[in-house]
Simulated scan of single mutants.
Amino acid sequence: MSTVNETAHAAPKAGIGKARLAGAALLILLGAFAIVGPEIVAADPAEQDFGASLAPIGGNYLLGADHYGRSLLARLAHGARLSFGMAFLTMLAAAIPGVLLGLLAAWKGGWTERALELAATVILALPGLMLVLLFLAFSPGNYGPLFLGLSLTLWVEFYRVTKATTKTVLTQPHIEAAQMLGFGSRYILLHYVLPVIAPMIATLAAFAMATAIIAVSTLSAISVGLQPPTPELGSMIVELLPYYTEAPLHVLLPAGLIFLLVLALQLLAQGDRA
């Protein structure tokens, strides 16, 4: 969970540099694999064939088979869709309320801001993974508690960055002039505030997705997240780890996919100017 916390207040770098372009290109490729891969790969990720246990890469299995004879290509495609989809939905569920509440706190101030600050402080008082584990304790292995716990952990950074930036923008002379001319809050927020905070929110969104991917994989790897036979990348690593000496590449495939997903998001968020 520390990825977002450590980088939330770093200003996004302007321009579209080589690193950012590389991140975008890699993310598009991985996103395409996650979205259309399960449709192209005809194999069922849960179908077992013990005669093909730990089948090597190539032959009947393009990326080999696991210890149950399940196609690794099919499982990786479904695992990528699961990780990418959960990360994207978690980011949206954290960003939308976080940004809206940040705008509300900055505009209203007073008791509204104090109440929201108290709620954010309470959330931050618990370590991120601990909050997720509390939700998972009620329904282990299900999507709902995992999704809700991650969203509740990540919204605080969106809220605080939005509030701090908006309060700064609202003190500028052109905002006072717009208010004196009779422009309403909706017009001011849409035309003066959102263009300023949008690059920061985009950066936070990338970091939030990377954090969600790592968290889902970590929790599944320690058997408190999504459970087998669900094709989740973290649980795939743990399942194949006892067979590392026999098929090391089989273990590295899901680990490499997690690495590439997180790398693409990090490059997209932190790209420098060309």
Rank of each mutant, 00 (worst) to 15 (best):
V122R: 12
A8I: 02
P127I: 01
A221G: 07
Y244N: 10
G69Y: 01
L72I: 11
L146C: 05
E176Y: 11
A11V: 03
T211Q: 15
G182K: 14
L62E: 14
S71Q: 07
Q172T: 09
G98P: 12
G51S: 13
T171W: 02
L260S: 14
F259V: 10
V161S: 10
A221F: 14
A210M: 03
A119Q: 09
G271A: 11
L89A: 14
G31Q: 04
V4T: 13
I214D: 04
L181I: 08
K163M: 08
A206C: 12
I197A: 15
A120C: 07
D49L: 11
Q270G: 02
I201E: 10
L226Q: 00
A106P: 06
M236N: 04
L252F: 11
P248C: 09
T3M: 05
A46E: 14
L103N: 06
R70H: 07
I237H: 12
A164P: 02
E6W: 09
I123P: 02
K18C: 02
L103V: 04
P145K: 03
L124M: 15
L146G: 00
F33K: 12
G271M: 10
A178F: 09
G31P: 08
V238M: 06
A269F: 02
A120G: 07
I35N: 00
H78E: 12
T245K: 13
T230Y: 00
A93C: 13
A106W: 04
L29T: 10
S53T: 14
G15C: 10
T166Y: 12
F88A: 15
A137E: 03
L204T: 07
Q227D: 03
L54D: 04
L194G: 02
M180T: 00
A105W: 00
A177V: 07
I258D: 10
L252N: 06
L252K: 06
L62M: 13
A215V: 00
L76F: 08
I35A: 15
R186G: 05
I237L: 14
H67L: 05
A10I: 05
L133M: 10
T90A: 15
G31R: 08
L263C: 01
M236S: 08
H67Q: 10
N5R: 14
V99P: 01
K18H: 07
